[in-house]
Design a protein around this nucleic acid. Structure first.
Lengths: 255, 255
DNA sequence: ACGTAAGGCTTACGCCGTAAGTCTCCTCCG
DNA sequence: CGGAGGAGACTTACGGCGTAAGCCTTACGT
């Protein structure tokens, strides 16, 4: 793997070291977190794991946030691989096939996350989604579209499922914080959100359904550019979905 | 509020300072987190807020974890107060009244949490629930029981609602981590879990439904003392509840 | 009146992330 | 083939964190 094979005996002539790449750093970080927990993942301990000094890591990651971004992306890629290995829906499947297919994808994602129990926590703290995560979401949207969902319903559905869609049960879309913070505003504000928009548009072909949904949902709500949805409405939608379902089960019991 | 009213002029004769109590420390911590965010809540900054030195805080809280425990408890108490202010269910309400009543409680809890956006994050990291949180849960259980739920269904329901029951959308019961860790075991193991059991039994009269539910659910699952439930089963239960509900909505659209 | 302990303060330690600077090769170009 | 340049390691150091350990004052109970 070294560029030429002159392994550079160095002073003492230790192993070639394979020169260390960002990929190797991220893989080590995942392994370390898997083994010793998220708390054990520090720049110093990761460096020790790799046999280098802490500061050397900064040649491959910008800072710790970037490291965590990369680590999440790696796990998301693992999920995507697992999902891609499933049999695809046959082209002539009926609309109702969306449900078992989606169930399978979500449980597959979950099986991967069970190997990285710390990942949800990290995922939650990211400011923007990794490409792999977004693509995975897009595949779920595609399934719902085939089930005959309007984009509006798809949108509510993603909120209701929340992070369950990724195989665990924490909320990905920020719980309340940021939305509450910018609730007063409403217009562009030219901040990091614009970058998000630009990024999304740029990967339009990679995540067609997502982009289309955003376009549709965005312009039917007057005040919101990407703020982006009414958290209260979404919360109540998901809540009612659950309460209604539970009530049905309870009513069966009462009968 | 000082024991006698001799306000102790001290050396320079500043304000009486009301002597500082655990309650005042916790209230300040909540205020600080509300104002500057969770990241700004450090022992040093909290001390500065109170006009004392960091180490002095340790006379009122055991350590930072204990501080956070207390802060969560304070927020939970605020939720309980808000819920208690709602009109109680009339004694002759029909079973079906559980649903709107529960909805109201949950949305009330949410309205409190919107004032403390950092609280869910902290709540999630607690090792055990505060008394106020547990009592709030018990009140939800009580409503479901009046709706004719079996304890088994109540149990599934709490998992499915997850932290939505507290007004936000993150999972309270640990996502996967601890359960996966002790999956191999199964029997008592005489660790912190025993303390939890003892504590729960001790407050049996404060949270009757919860205790009863635990008793019932526990002995019908062979391998688990308080490990405590099959996460996979609960995950699938909640997932199916949502998928079924969504499918119903989508089918309406298709029609 | 005095012992005592509650509740402040000071100092110091070992972690953390990371800014800044240095040294040592490898690679590429003339 | 020789020297420039840069990539990628290392060293040192800083400020912030939680908190262990110890000191000093003050107020209260006896």
């Amino acid at each position: 793997m070294t560029s030429p094979q002159t392994a550079s005996p160095q002073t003492a002539g230790a192993a070639p070291r394979t020169t260390l790449t960002r990929a190797r750093v991220l893989e080590s970080a995942v392994a370390l977190a898997d083994r010793d927990g998220l708390g054990a993942l520090t720049m110093r301990s990761l460096a020790k794991e790799l046999g280098i000094e802490a500061m050397s890591l900064y040649h491959h990651v910008a800072n710790k946030e970037d490291l965590l971004d990369g680590v999440v992306d790696l796990v998301a890629a693992e999920i995507q691989d697992a999902v891609a290995a499933l049999e695809p829906l046959p082209a002539d499947a009926p609309p109702s096939a969306w449900k078992p297919a989606m169930r399978r994808q979500i449980l597959t994602a979950r099986s991967v996350l069970l190997r990285h129990p710390w990942a949800p926590t990290v995922l939650e703290t990211r400011k923007s989604f990794s490409l792999h995560v977004v693509r995975y979401f897009d595949s779920l949207l595609a399934l719902m579209r085939r089930g005959g969902f309007s984009y509006d319903l798809v949108h509510h559905a993603m909120h209701a499922l929340g992070s369950r869609a990724l195989g665990f049960s924490q909320e990905l879309f920020e719980p309340d914080g940021a939305a509450a913070g910018s609730a007063a505003g409403g217009l562009p504000e030219a901040g990091a959100e614009d970058e998000t928009v630009a990024m999304l548009e740029q990967m339009a072909e990679q995540v067609p359904h997502l982009v289309e949904m955003l376009a549709e949902v965005a312009h039917e709500q007057p005040g919101s550019t990407l703020g982006w949805c009414d958290d209260q409405t979404e919360f109540e939608f998901g809540l009612d979905l659950l309460l209604d379902g539970l009530d049905r089960l309870a009513a069966d019991g009462r009968r």
